Amino acid sequence: MDLSQLPYRTLAIVRGTDRDAAVRTVLTLAEEGITAAEVSLTTPDAFGVIEQARRELGPDAVLGAGTVLTDADAARSADAGASFLVTPGLVPDLATELPCLIGALTPSEVIAATRAGALAVKLFPASHGGLGYLKALRDPFPQVPFLPVGGVDAATARAYLAAGAVAVGVGSPLIGDAASGGDLWALRDRAAQWRHELAEAVAE
């Protein structure tokens, strides 16, 4: 799994209050060209959402589970068809063979995440330090693939990518209320705008 090759270098974070709406959100994003998605386990029946989306999208879809906190979460996510896991912070000795995006904020946490074999370090919450903080972290960790998450909109996404982030994770600025039963046409409009805003940054 090469995060730098994600369409628009974007990982959509689907977190909502309605199971069926969350499935529709993942499928609509895929139709709109944003094909990498993480389903947060805080979503009702998140494992069922992943399982159904996997059936609809096929075995090669970049579909993962987010907010993974325990070995049981990891195992059930794998059984549901997740191809990667995302944690909000360090989860010591997480038992899984799936690639993991491990949440970290401080330099010590970045070191721990990389030693744990993180596919990428999920810089969370990225809004805590913003662009300047990512740039500061990249000085001592130039080889670490960072994926900023938290408060990421199109403008900050472009800036993070320009500063060396491998990709970005985006939630509500893209998803809106779609995963809680909101308007899917509005989601399509936001997805189209996101593609427009990120196309030039990704091409650079």
Rank of each mutant, 00 (worst) to 15 (best):
Q193R: 15
V144N: 12
G58V: 06
F146E: 03
L29C: 11
S172N: 11
E197G: 00
S108G: 14
D177T: 15
G81F: 02
R19D: 01
V91N: 08
F124H: 05
E97I: 00
Q52R: 15
G117L: 08
D2M: 09
Y8A: 02
L101N: 04
P44E: 07
F146K: 04
V149M: 12
L27D: 08
D71N: 14
D73N: 14
A192D: 13
D71W: 01
I13H: 05
A167L: 07
I34C: 03
V49G: 12
K122D: 08
D2I: 00
D60H: 14
H128G: 02
D189M: 01
E97P: 00
L94T: 07
D60S: 15
P59N: 12
T106E: 07
A72R: 15
A116V: 05
V149C: 14
T25D: 04
V26Q: 08
G132R: 08
L98F: 09
G103H: 07
R24N: 14
L57K: 11
L101P: 06
G171I: 04
A78N: 02
A46Q: 09
R54F: 04
L94F: 10
V26I: 11
T114Q: 15
A36G: 12
A104M: 12
R158I: 02
A192W: 03
V152S: 07
G117S: 11
R54S: 09
V121N: 04
L94H: 11
F146C: 02
G81Q: 04
R190A: 10
A199M: 03
V14K: 07
R195H: 10
A120N: 02
G130W: 01
A165E: 05
P7Y: 03
A12V: 06
G48S: 12
L11K: 03
A74F: 01
A46C: 10
A78E: 15
T114D: 11
D183L: 07
A53R: 05
A46E: 09
E204N: 06
P107Q: 13
P173D: 04
L137K: 10
A113R: 09
A65N: 11
L161A: 09
H128F: 13
A199F: 00
V62P: 00
I102N: 07
R15F: 05
D139F: 01
E97C: 00
E204S: 11
V168R: 05
A199D: 14
V49A: 09
A74N: 02
L198N: 10
S172Y: 00
L198D: 04
P44I: 10
K135M: 12
E204H: 13
A30N: 13
T114R: 15
L134Y: 12
T28S: 13
E200T: 13
V86Q: 01
A61G: 04
L187F: 04
D139E: 14
Q5S: 15
D79V: 07
D20H: 12
A78V: 00
H196W: 05
S40V: 15
G64K: 12
